[in-house]
Nucleic acid binder design. Structure first.
Lengths: 148, 148
DNA sequence: GGAATATAGTGAGCATTGCTATTATATCCA
DNA sequence: TGGATATAATAGCAATGCTCACTATATTCC
């Protein structure tokens, strides 16, 4: 195989999604949807643009996901009283409940994926991936903690 | 942010695709298509099932990609003389030519992505990702080189 | 030889993701 | 104040990727 970091990353990312989705299929939630729900647990009331930026996806992508999550009654859109263009997104009780059910699936997926990978290697992996994400992100980077 | 290896991997993979696609847009080829063309350079004449397995995607996914690549005259399907169910896939001259044009875009994308990541870190990244892929793959694993 | 099973590929339907373009509303500045 | 510009969200179109179901052909085994 013509091993290449880009190809490898794409494959691993796809396999990880497939692995989670297999587990969560019965619940009817995909991994990207789970990520949105998780983010809303921490950032309740964010608008769609802010959520899209946190997830590094385009606003239209996130908007469509919110459509489906709203249809499934897992989140709700509330008008922003200060900006009539914007929606503020909140988890519903049903969404909160689902998050609790999904958490074990996430852990199980990662446990399988990272079998035989040491703590040090996991830390290194996260550090390198964070660096790559920063290199590729369109977001303005905050000034580095260690600035030169 | 609720940093989690799965989320990070998905983001990096998406950003990498977006970065390549921005560069290659003028040529009209996406990154997954490029990966298929690259694979065909090495494994000319493979059937769709074998290509799908190498790319870790489902046969139907690869089949649809071959449809589009064939429509664009970048690959061709030839009947397998020994198995009337199967197609053997080959690059066309046009496909070969495009590969030469795409190679620099691939390198450029990776150069930007891996800026500030040392050779040792890149090697470690590839090794860890390969391990994770192996953990998640549905393929029967070959006996490990270092077996116990 | 012929039935049971396996394999190669495709069709329908859906979610995710992107690009480009558009609408509605905010903000900025002359 | 009012026109120019920016921002929040959405509409349409297309590619990737999956599941499930199906057809056609190979292989296996009685």
């Amino acid at each position: 195989m013509d091993e290449n970091i880009g190809t490898l990353l794409a494959q691993v990312s796809r396999l990880l999604r497939r692995s989670f989705d297999e587990r969560a299929r019965g619940i009817g939630v995909t991994r990207p949807q789970w990520q949105v729900l998780s983010l809303l647990k921490i950032h309740a009331g964010s608008n769609q643009g802010a959520l899209a930026e946190m997830l590094e996806v385009e606003p239209i992508t996130l908007g469509r996901m919110i459509d489906r999550l709203q249809e499934a009654e897992l989140v709700e859109r509330r008008a922003d009283p200060a900006d009539r263009r914007a929606w503020r997104i909140f988890l519903t009780d049903k969404g909160e409940g689902l998050l609790d059910k999904l958490r074990p699936f996430g852990h199980e997926t990662l446990d399988v994926a990272l079998e035989g990978v040491s703590k040090a290697e996991r830390d290194q992996l996260m550090a390198t991936l964070a660096r790559v994400r920063s290199n590729l992100s369109r977001k303005v980077q905050p000034v580095a903690v260690v600035n030169g």
